[in-house]
Write a protein that binds this DNA or RNA. Structure first.
Lengths: 127, 127
DNA sequence: GTGTTTGCAAACCGTTTGCATGTCC
DNA sequence: GGACATGCAAACGGTTTGCAAACAC
């Protein structure tokens, strides 16, 4: 039986209202401003919980840290190789890509994640 | 100035002749059979070297370990969520996907990685 | 009351690094 | 001989976990 907790609701809410694809520590630092006694372990446990429940996405961007995304609708991600920021890219064919891949693979394809790498608009204007 | 070493050539060769997308430790165990004194640090250093040189790909599959791919030609990857195996998927549109994404994003997109998740043919037949 | 969640701190584990030694050119 | 590479072991950093106390229902 799942019980409510202030910590979990704060974490769920924090993730739902930000679009910067934070790491566990970023969520921890943010929550600590309103609940100073929360522990990092609790943040990790609840982020894992949310991912397992399907209420958050786990992103592996290649920087050695796990990032989290409160937007569970299928979409692509862009990672800036200069500043490390992560943006969402919504474009059509997001469903077709699996269908196409299925034709080239004999197993069952149920999901996918696509990361684009390059220079974000902000870093681009700095040169 | 880059110097040759037996260790580096063995690692490069090992990666080139396998398609199972091994972790550093898997390469280490494999090389140790012919060169028992090689150290794990050397394997890590040389895999990083090969990736930096563009002679190997680094894959973040979500299992917390870095995987390596000696095939640097652009292709998609399939990861079995049951056994964890990794297969290559070669299909068209691999170049188009960046072009399409560029139309939906104002930054410079220079590369991408796409992982498909599901059940591999081997695990599928077990049920 | 019973089973879940928390805070804390230690453990874990993949990876990196410092350093003395060895190797290539 | 000088720059680069290695082996070893310790350090590092993100994440997980064991446990007693606190909490939800």
């Amino acid at each position: 039986m799942i019980k409510r907790s202030v910590q979990r609701e704060l974490i769920r809410n924090n993730l739902a209202h930000r679009t910067d694809h934070p790491t566990a520590d970023m969520v921890y630092q943010s929550i600590r401003e309103e609940l100073p006694n929360i522990s990092l372990g609790t943040v990790y446990r609840n982020l894992r919980f949310l991912v397992d429940q399907g209420d958050a996405l786990s992103l592996k961007l290649g920087d050695g840290k796990e990032h989290f995304d409160g937007n569970v609708n299928p979409h692509f991600h862009f990672i800036c190789t200069q500043c490390g920021c992560v943006d969402d890219i919504f474009m059509p064919s997001i469903d077709e890509i699996c269908t196409t891949a299925s034709k080239y693979y004999s197993g069952d394809i149920k999901g996918h994640s696509t990361y684009f790498y390059g220079t974000c608009p902000n870093c681009k204007t700095k040169h």
